Simulated scan of single mutants.
Amino acid sequence: MSFVLAFPVFDPVAIAVGPIVIRWYALAYIGGIVIGWFYARALLKNQRLWGGTSPIPLVAWDDFILWVTLGIILGGRIGYVLFYNLDFFIQHPLEIFELWKGGMSFHGGFLGCVIAVLAFAWKRGLPIASLGDLTCAVGPIGLLLGRIANFINGELWGRAADPSLPWAMVFPTGGPVPRHPSQLYEAALEGVVLFLVLALMIRAKALSRPGLIMGAFIGLYGVARIIGELFREPDPQLGFLWGGWTMGMLLSVPMIVVGLGIVVWALRRPPLTAKAATGHSSH
């Protein structure tokens, strides 16, 4: 018996006022940044989580938002161009700037965030590990909203599924084949599960060990992404690579290794204490 669901029809445009058009995908980026900004401010104000005064002043975090936003957008686009569709963009270089047509890479966006953290921390004299922890703590919020936007757009759909699967779905651009709604799987793993794990770690004072949240985010995202890729149809211009692996899987393997290394490094260092804090006010 078939339980195939029809893909719900969504308007990809969330807000349209005259010539101004805001799509759900753009709104997901905006929402992720704004919600993450406020969540991070709440973490900074809670001295118990840091073992004393937080090493990142609130005013510095407010200034950092612009830096990390540019890192996400520029890194995400450059990553997509280089990792997923280089041949096309070599032939059509002007389309690199047409962001409204879609095409962003998480791994590229993450590298953009890393550069933003390193540059801002160096410029302001802030601890890199703690700034990285804070940035990674809010990361799953943006991932959740981004994957939901992928689903609304009917893009990045999953592999063919057994029609008896209750939530198997036919996507408008995926042909008549029932597929896994892999965007929702990824939203659950990369967004909800990862956020909850990091939140529990933060509650257990993981922020008092600089680098621990950052390492956990990097490694666990790599695991979550590889699991999600098992149900996701690979990009048509790339297809399956070596041994049935996809580009998303290959890019996630180094994240697991690096994340584990950072976790070990963080656990071997002494935790922050009230005396070890920089003394910056978090008013």
Rank of each mutant, 00 (worst) to 15 (best):
residue 1 M to P: 13
residue 3 F to L: 12
residue 3 F to T: 13
residue 4 V to D: 00
residue 18 G to Q: 06
residue 25 Y to W: 07
residue 27 L to I: 04
residue 30 I to M: 14
residue 39 Y to I: 01
residue 40 A to V: 07
residue 42 A to R: 10
residue 46 N to D: 13
residue 53 T to Q: 11
residue 53 T to M: 08
residue 54 S to P: 04
residue 55 P to R: 01
residue 61 W to E: 00
residue 61 W to P: 01
residue 62 D to Q: 02
residue 66 L to A: 06
residue 72 I to G: 02
residue 72 I to H: 02
residue 78 I to T: 13
residue 84 Y to N: 04
residue 85 N to M: 05
residue 93 P to Y: 10
residue 95 E to C: 01
residue 96 I to M: 15
residue 97 F to L: 15
residue 100 W to F: 15
residue 102 G to F: 14
residue 106 F to K: 00
residue 106 F to Q: 03
residue 106 F to R: 01
residue 108 G to E: 00
residue 111 L to I: 12
residue 111 L to Q: 01
residue 111 L to C: 11
residue 113 C to K: 06
residue 118 L to R: 05
residue 121 A to C: 05
residue 124 R to Y: 04
residue 126 L to S: 08
residue 126 L to P: 04
residue 127 P to S: 01
residue 128 I to F: 12
residue 130 S to F: 02
residue 131 L to D: 02
residue 132 G to N: 04
residue 134 L to I: 05
residue 139 G to R: 00
residue 140 P to N: 02
residue 140 P to R: 03
residue 145 L to Q: 00
residue 149 A to C: 06
residue 150 N to D: 14
residue 151 F to M: 07
residue 153 N to A: 09
residue 156 L to G: 10
residue 156 L to I: 12
residue 157 W to F: 15
residue 158 G to I: 11
residue 160 A to F: 08
residue 161 A to C: 11
residue 162 D to P: 03
residue 165 L to S: 08
residue 169 M to F: 03
residue 171 F to A: 08
residue 180 H to R: 07
residue 181 P to I: 10
residue 183 Q to K: 10
residue 189 L to K: 11
residue 192 V to C: 12
residue 193 V to I: 13
residue 195 F to Y: 13
residue 200 L to C: 09
residue 203 R to M: 01
residue 203 R to N: 04
residue 207 L to R: 04
residue 208 S to G: 13
residue 211 G to L: 04
residue 218 I to L: 15
residue 220 L to W: 08
residue 221 Y to E: 10
residue 222 G to A: 03
residue 224 A to H: 10
residue 226 I to L: 09
residue 226 I to K: 09
residue 227 I to A: 14
residue 230 L to T: 09
residue 235 D to H: 15
residue 236 P to A: 15
residue 237 Q to S: 15
residue 239 G to R: 14
residue 241 L to M: 14
residue 249 M to Y: 12
residue 249 M to P: 10
residue 250 L to A: 08
residue 251 L to C: 00
residue 257 V to W: 10
residue 260 L to P: 00
residue 261 G to C: 03
residue 264 V to N: 00
residue 269 R to F: 02
residue 272 L to I: 06
residue 273 T to I: 09
residue 276 A to C: 08
residue 277 A to V: 05
residue 283 H to N: 11
